[in-house]
Write a protein that binds this DNA or RNA. Structure first.
Length: 858
DNA sequence: ACCTGTGGCGAAACAC
DNA sequence: GTGTTTCGCCAC
């Protein structure tokens, strides 16, 4: 980790580092103090050298450079203990072999809003003295419990931002100036009224405007001999042969390296029409040697699950075959595996990031983890079908299979004009995290790093979590849901029924807007200068500082304003399609940070955890919502439903909507007309409705028949019903459609009763969110089914999806693989159908009993 | 090993 | 039998 002190220099890691990393860098990398304009790919601490190492890439000459930090940075820690006290009370610190020197520095402490004097204790090279700074900290903590108040990065006070452009200027790395388009400059003064905001926004602009170069890259995928089908070889032991390695590069490289094995004939004819080249090797050593040669020629290596399988397997296999460590361009880090001279991105980990899944890909591969499933969902291409095990596959089929996987992996980074790579670079710049770290950490780590960077840039102390809680307090409200920490959003109770001509208003980025508008930040909330503060809302006892702008409020506000008023516009109006596409990536990268900015303050694991901030955010949002509801009634529109930041209105008109917008503006929040529905069906439940828009689009929310775990035949029934509903234009049509819907339901019921249905249509797919033995409080059905499956050697665990059917036996379930259609408990399925259909029927004014009654008569 | 939040629905399991 | 808890999935 580049900028995160706590992440670096754990004792185990120190030992791992010793000696190995540098040797190969010296062979493969271009170590230089003369750097042409290049983008920073990674910033790490090089333990053996005791220096910062920046990997840079110059796309114009296609060269990777290593630049070592020679500016005298040394690991340090900050304490509020004065030097003379340390010397007097803890003299061991001065005698510690890792101790270098100490000095007194002035820092701004946002929590107390004053300058404080801190002692900066420098350590020598941490490796040569066994832990250095870390062991000094332990020493201090042992003697002076919890006196180490504030932690700090030892690498840079002002970091080199990954993804940005630098060149050497004699003294060190200097940023390459970025050209800012006139229209962007001009819009800044319009968007930001205060000087502070405008200045801060100006500093952000280069991160969004700096060019994103094409980074040449290679995707790698390996296939390993497996004596038993379904058993993944352990990369630690690496006991079986690497039989095939596919390397597919963005520069046109399409190569599969195949190992000749006894008993495996090579049918040259079969290889002749492949669109990739195949190289045969007589021994594994040469094959792997060739793989390493290729890896070292690229600034970027991409893989799918390379952290946990491909790269460690290659590394350990190479060791076993007699390679020396310094001949292997693969480096194990504490949390991941990287390469030399470039960097390694594991797309498996990237796609597992929740924020990426939700915001970047709209949830299209939700819950899926495999290459095949994600590729089908995102790219629309799947893997090559495979009948035999890797070990038994004819070599031509093996090569084809292997090639496809590597090709898909590369294609993830290339499709849609390199969307994924551009997104990664932009997210890196915003978070100040190198791509290798960014693609492996969740959004809270991104925001943490971004905020830490902003603190360091300003010379602020980074507060400890305990200090924030101690001075700002905890939550005041009680959550509705048991086990939650504070009250959240309001949800209006909708009436059941069909409503025509429904207008939906939407508060734009409500929570971020609240944070920005009310100056919410851990240091401004419940500050010490109570006389210069005000209580924003009677419901809560919290007060907010008036005299200074909160750092999180400022940042969230700037990002939101830049996104809405600059980059969303550019994404629509920029002159060329390429520019528009790029600006669209920019605005979606910003969205990820903006949307996650509220939640982190309510997360105990977040280092700037501050319950009053989270609680004020939701409380003020509730106020915005409820007062707007009252306003609606006042202007004569009827709010029928609303959830958190949306409001469904009937009897609306343009001037009434305008009045609503004016009101929201007076609160300092933007409100947009999000949708106009031709009609909406409300089942009477919250978070549960079906709407058809003016242009015939269908929007379904929360209906059980639409959920991922609904049996296919229920989904099909709901789809059929929806098709009927689409034709509805008037209230009369509703009555007509009722009969059709009833008929459909009866038809499906009959099909189920007569077993005219296949097993896969009644299968329920549910994911296991824990390993089987972790379900201790109760044993849900899908867990029972998974246990049955385990008896047959199919072991499922966290993240896997189990497919099961409900049966009439005492256990009540069977995995779909073990069940027969005549065992199915049709009663349960009729119930399932009933609840799904009810949510639509009740809106139409029919009850399920009525429908059943009709059926009996018929 | 994992790390953004709370509110809401429905099924089943569990506690009494 | 009823009421409560747990779990998965969803809305925002």
């Amino acid at each position: 980790m580049a900028f995160e002190e706590e992440e670096v220099l754990e004792e185990e890691e120190v030992r791992e580092y010793e000696g190995e990393e540098i040797a190969e860098f010296k062979i493969k990398g271009v170590i230089s103090t003369s750097i042409p304009p290049s983008i920073a790919l990674s910033v790490t601490y090089d333990g053996a050298e005791g220096k910062a190492l920046v990997k840079l890439y110059d796309p114009s000459t296609d060269t990777v450079y290593y630049w070592y930090d020679n500016t005298g940075h040394r690991p340090y820690l900050l304490t509020d203990l004065p030097p003379e006290v340390i010397a007097d009370k803890v003299p061991e610190v001065l005698k510690h072999p890792g101790f270098s020197h100490m000095e007194v520095v002035k820092k701004y402490d946002a929590l107390s809003n004053r300058e404080v004097l801190m002692t900066k204790i420098y350590a020598k090279d941490p490796l040569s003295v066994g832990g250095g700074r870390r062991s000094i900290r332990d020493l201090l903590q042992k003697t002076w419990e919890s006196r180490i108040k504030y932690h700090h990065s030892y690498l840079f006070d002002r970091g080199i931002v990954p993804g940005m452009w630098y060149r050497s200027n004699g003294a060190g790395l200097a940023p390459v100036p970025i050209e800012i388009p006139e229209e962007v400059k001009a819009s800044l003064s319009k968007v930001f009224s205060s000087e502070d905001e405008r200045e801060a926004a100006e500093e952000w602009i280069p991160y969004f405007q700096a060019p994103i170069p094409h980074i040449r890259r290679v995707a790698i995928d390996i296939e390993v001999f497996t004596p038993q089908e379904n058993k993944v070889p352990n990369p630690k032991d690496a006991e079986y042969e690497v039989v095939s390695v596919a390397l597919v590069g963005s520069d046109g490289l399409r190569r599969v390296l195949v190992l000749r094995r006894p008993g495996m004939d090579i049918d040259l004819e079969a290889f002749s029409d492949f669109d990739f080249e195949v190289l045969f090797f007589d021994n594994e050593y040469d094959l792997i040697s060739e793989v390493f040669k290729v890896i070292t020629q690229y600034p970027l290596v991409v893989s799918f699950n390379g952290d946990n399988f491909d790269l460690p397997y290659l590394y350990n296999r190479a060791l076993a075959l007699g390679f020396k460590r310094e001949e292997i361009p693969i480096v194990a880090r504490r949390d991941y595996v990287t390469v030399a001279p470039g960097i390694h991105i594991d797309l498996y980990k990237f796609f597992a990031i929740k924020a990426i899944e939700v915001y970047a890909f709209g949830g299209v591969y939700r819950g899926e983890r495999g290459l095949d499933a994600i590729a089908s969902a995102v790219l629309g291409v799947g893997k090559v079908e495979r009948q035999e095990s890797i070990s038994a596959m004819p070599l031509d089929e093996l090569a084809e299979y292997n090639y496809r996987d590597a090709f898909i992996t590369l294609y993830f980074t290339l499709y849609n004009d390199e969307l994924v790579m551009k997104l990664i670079i932009l997210l890196s710049r915003i978070a100040k995290l190198p791509p290798e770290d960014l693609t492996r950490s969740q959004v809270s780590a991104w925001i943490r790093n971004m905020l830490y960077y902003e603190h360091r840039k300003r010379g602020w102390l980074i507060p400890n979590k305990e200090d924030i809680i101690a001075s700002r307090g905890g939550a005041y409200t009680k959550a509705i849901i048991k086990g939650k920490k504070y009250a959240g959003a309001v949800v209006l109770d909708p009436p059941a029924g069909v409503f025509f001509n429904v207008y939906v208003l939407d508060f734009a980025s409500l929570y971020p807007s609240v944070i920005s508008r009310w100056n919410l930040s851990y240091e401004t909330v419940n500050c010490q200068e109570k006389e210069n503060a005000e209580r924003p809302i009677a419901e809560l006892p919290h007060w907010i500082c008036k005299g200074r702008r909160g750092i999180t409020s400022l940042l969230v506000g700037i990002l939101r304003d830049l996104r809405v008023h600059v980059y969303k516009r550019l994404a629509k109006n920029a002159p060329t399609p390429q520019e528009r596409a790029l600006y669209d990536v920019v605005q979606s990268a910003m969205k990820v940070f903006i949307n996650a900015s509220y939640g982190v303050f309510g997360a105990e694991t977040f280092p700037l955890y501050c319950p009053p901030v989270a609680e004020l955010t939701t409380a003020l949002a509730r106020y915005v919502m409820t007062s707007t509801v009252l306003k609606a009634i006042e202007v004569g529109v009827q709010p029928i439903y609303g959830d958190t930041d949306s409001l469904f209105l009937i009897n609306a008109s343009e001037d009434k909507i305008k009045a609503m917008m004016d009101y929201a503006n007076s609160l300092g929040i933007d409100i947009d007309l999000d949708k106009v529905y031709r009609f909406v069906l409300f089942s009477g439940r919250k978070k549960n409705y079906l709407g058809v828009t003016a242009d015939g689009g269908v929007i379904i929310k929360g209906l059980v028949g639409k959920k991922r775990n609904a049996p296919v035949f229920v989904k099909e029934l709901v789809d059929d019903i929806v098709k009927e509903l689409k034709s509805v234009q008037t209230l009369d049509d509703v009555f007509k459609v009722r009969d059709d819907v009833s008929a459909l339901v009866k038809e499906y019921e009959a099909r189920l009763k007569e077993h005219k249905i296949t097993l896969d249509k009644v299968a329920i797919k549910t994911s296991l969110n824990k390993d089987l033995d972790e379900y201790t409080k109760n044993k849900p059905q899908h867990v029972k089914a998974a246990e049955l499956l385990a008896k047959y050697g199919i072991r499922l665990g966290r993240g896997d999806v189990i497919s099961y059917v409900k049966t009439r036996d005492s256990l009540g379930v069977k995995p779909v693989q073990l069940a027969r259609i005549d065992e199915v408990d049709e009663r349960k399925y009729l119930e399932y159908m009933a609840t799904s259909v009810e949510q639509i029927l009740e809106a139409l004014g029919i009850s399920m009993e009525e429908l059943r009654g009709v059926m009996k008569l018929a």
